[in-house]
């Protein structure tokens, strides 16, 4: 059985410009110790999906669908204990007026009843922070971006969560620092057996670390597959577009996907990608495609999947 099971997750926001459908019946799962990448452009509903897992969305959001961790719906107490988060902006995600040690200790105290200096230092060591005994008393502004992200990770894994949700953990960092952070995440999976739900739009990161990929577009899951299969046989035109937009040696021109992600107001009886797709037909605009195994054998939500008969 999988560790995390998300079934028909739907998230709506009430905004001043009207309702927004951010996630539209998304279903996916994460197995124990598995690294699953949630991929898509900005505005596809990836972060909203992640926050919805433990009810962290703002008050104007309404969430429907089933979320189960080991077969039960995660309680608010599961936050930070069973499901922990790392966010994109290490610069602003740590509290500027509290020491690093205090911020890590808080999690330990909250979920394990006690925190000790030794345990905090151990955690800082685990995420590869040099001189942890000194860093423990420092404030976030005294650390570099990469160090802050390591502190975020130390905080997140303090209680050995079953699932670590990393929302664009390397996007704000330099490339060399990125590699270090990915190493830390990989080690954590190996050392404490944490599963990882990695949210990113960087397919390089996906290729580096993920076991499986879930592609989202405009709130819907449109394709999922093992990482090698997805890179070798993208089935949905959107996935293909994402892969084409990655710089590759020997291919001088990058292809972009024309247009931008639409803001969905309500669920529609059409493929949400229809307006940007080069294979679009009348069927795409009038009937909602279902997520079903495509020509390459893995599920995709497309009436005209790639790799089939052209």
């Amino acid at each position: 059985m999988s560790l995390l099971e998300v079934q028909d997750l739907t998230v709506r926001f009430r905004t001043e410009e009207g309702p927004v459908l951010a996630v539209d019946e998304a279903s996916f799962s994460v197995a124990t110790r598995e690294v699953v990448a949630l991929v898509g452009e900005s505005g596809c509903g990836k972060s909203v999906t992640a926050l919805a897992l433990t009810d962290l969305l703002p008050r104007n959001a309404s969430v429907a669908g089933a979320i189960q961790l080991n077969g039960v719906r995660p309680s608010p107490r599961a936050r930070g204990r069973d499901i922990a988060y790392i966010f994109q902006e290490p610069m602003t995600s740590l509290n500027p007026v509290l020491t690093v040690g205090r911020q890590i200790g808080e999690v330990l105290k909250r979920h394990q009843g006690a925190s000790s200096r030794a345990r905090i230092i151990e955690l800082l060591e685990l995420v590869g922070i040099p001189l942890p005994g000194r860093r423990i008393g420092e404030y976030p502004h005294q650390l570099s971006g990469g160090m802050r992200q390591r502190v975020m990770i130390a905080m997140a894994v303090a209680c050995r969560p079953k699932l670590l949700v990393a929302d664009e953990p390397t996007t704000a960092l330099d490339v060399t620092v990125q590699a270090g952070i990915l190493d830390v995440l990989r080690n954590l999976r190996d050392e404490i057996g944490t599963a990882l739900l990695l949210i990113t739009h960087d397919l390089g990161v996906v290729a580096d670390i993920a076991d499986r990929v879930v592609v989202m577009y405009a709130g819907r899951v449109i394709e999922q597959a093992g990482v090698h299969r997805l890179f070798a046989h993208p089935t949905h035109p959107y996935t293909r577009g994402l892969l084409d937009a990655v710089p590759t040696p020997g291919r001088p021109v990058l292809k972009e996907i024309p247009g931008r992600v639409p803001v969905m107001r309500a669920t529609s009886d059409a493929c949400t990608f229809a307006d940007r797709c080069w294979r679009v037909t009348e069927q795409c605009r009038s009937v909602r495609p279902v997520l079903e195994p495509g020509p390459a054998g893995h599920p995709a939500r497309c009436w005209h999947p790639l790799g089939g008969k052209e």
Partner: peptide, 26 residues
């Protein structure tokens, strides 16, 4: 609405800890 308050909530802290310990302090 600051990121560090989202972090504090994601850590599972109680509302009182989030509001008084993190937001008010700032």
């Amino acid at each position: 609405t600051a990121d560090y308050v989202r972090t504090a909530r994601a850590k599972g802290l109680s509302s009182a800890q989030v509001v008084l310990g993190h937001a008010l302090r700032n």
